[in-house]
């Protein structure tokens, strides 16, 4: 009787461990990677906002920059008019904005990205909580006293 009990308990523990290892942990890794991606986007847009603000503050209408051709080979590029800027709005679309329009779009976009980050953070916390709970369940099954 006790042997069967022990065997059943072993099977259950194994099932829980498999759930943690094969489902929850990969999910967690994926969620963290996605959140990092959103963080990067947020940084890109905050940089863009800063650059446009500095352009507006300095009243720069003509710009000389270096374009990366790939493999760290740069060529000089000339921008005759900086007042019109094409901004990536997602899904491969770029919209022509003025500086003020661009700043407005960027603030909307930043808010959305912040919301996405919050969602991912919640998701990550959720997964972590689930992992913790399953681990607690395993501890109970093995009748190890709580720390």
């Amino acid at each position: 009787m006790e042997e069967i009990d022990a065997r059943l308990r072993q099977e259950k523990v194994k099932k829980f461990e498999d759930f943690v290892d094969r489902r929850l942990k990969p999910d967690l890794v994926k969620a963290i990677a996605q959140r990092d991606k959103v963080f990067q986007q947020q940084k890109v847009f905050s940089d863009l906002k800063m650059n446009i603000e500095s352009l507006a503050k300095n009243g720069v209408t003509r710009l000389r920059s270096m374009v990366n051709l790939g493999s760290e080979v740069y060529v000089q590029a000339d921008v005759p008019d900086t007042r019109r800027i094409f901004v990536d709005i997602g899904l491969g679309f770029h919209v022509e904005f003025t500086w003020s329009e661009a700043l407005e779009f960027i603030s909307v976009r930043e808010a959305r990205l912040a919301r996405q980050i919050d969602e991912y953070t919640h998701l990550i916390a959720n997964i972590k909580a689930q992992i913790k709970m399953v681990c607690e369940g395993i501890r109970e099954l093995l009748q190890i006293p709580a720390e």
């Binding site: 920059s65 921008v79 005759p80």
Partner: peptide
């Protein structure tokens, strides 16, 4: 001409 990775200006080399 790329301006950051999310924006660019029309320009020339």
């Amino acid at each position: 001409v790329p301006f950051g990775s999310a924006a660019f200006f029309p320009g020339r080399l």
